[in-house]
């Protein structure tokens, strides 16, 4: 579903901007990243909600595993079913947008490093809004500010086409730092938010 949305957004963008291949090639990394962010938001609301509604989540809370680890497992599953397919689809969509040949490798690498951060941060928004009937929209609004560093470093990492030198390399390292930091913060915060929502 998310991949299909990704494809549709990327198809819409040239229609809005105009079919000028040079212009599209210049802004392709930014377009691909923004479309990827939006697509990964789509599936967030079901991350915990189905399990919350039928009580599975409460059973999991009572089990031996700490809730934080359960949350990590769910985030991993979310990344495998949403983040990874989006990264895999990116080369094809890059061709559609006339992405420069030397930018493919750094962009895909940056997305592979950055997309786990999207699932990790997104899990906080999903957990905060788990008890709301239309939580998806609010979750997106809450999470988008947290996605900004990923977007900035992700686009910068694809900047000049050199993977292991200069500003792009620095951006790639910072992107990895953002992912690791969100690995520390995300599951803990999501578990706290889930507990807060289950108590009431």
């Amino acid at each position: 579903m998310a991949v299909f949305f990704f494809l549709v957004v990327i198809t819409l963008l040239p229609m809005g901007i105009g079919p000028n291949l040079n212009l599209l090639g210049q802004i392709a990394p930014g377009l691909l990243w923004v479309a990827l962010l939006l697509s990964s938001l789509l599936t967030l609301d079901r991350l915990f909600q189905a399990d919350f509604e039928d009580g599975t989540l409460e059973v999991l809370t009572l089990g031996h595993l700490p809730l934080e680890l359960t949350v990590v497992a769910k985030i991993m599953a979310h990344w495998l079913t949403t983040g990874l397919p989006l990264v895999v689809a990116t080369p094809l969509l890059g061709l559609l947008l006339n992405l420069g040949a030397e930018q493919f490798e750094p962009l895909i690498l940056a997305m592979a490093i950055g997309t786990p951060a999207l699932s990790l941060m997104g899990s906080i928004g999903a957990a905060l809004t788990v008890s709301l009937r239309r939580g998806g929209l609010l979750a997106s609004l809450l999470v988008i500010p947290f996605y900004i560093p990923v977007l900035i470093f992700g686009v910068a990492a694809a900047g000049d086409g050199e993977v292991l030198s200069g500003a792009a390399h620095q951006a790639l390292l910072l992107l990895g730092a953002v992912t690791l930091a969100s690995l520390v913060v995300g599951p803990w915060a999501a578990a706290a938010a889930l507990r807060a929502n289950m108590r009431g």
Binding site: L128, I152, A156, A189, A196, N197
Partner: peptide
Amino acid sequence: VRAGRAAAVLALIGSINVPIIHYSVVWW
């Protein structure tokens, strides 16, 4: 009570993220 807990988690996560967002934007 439930809203208070959820909002408190959000505010704290935001306060951790505000410096990260700020410096990423400065870098930008």
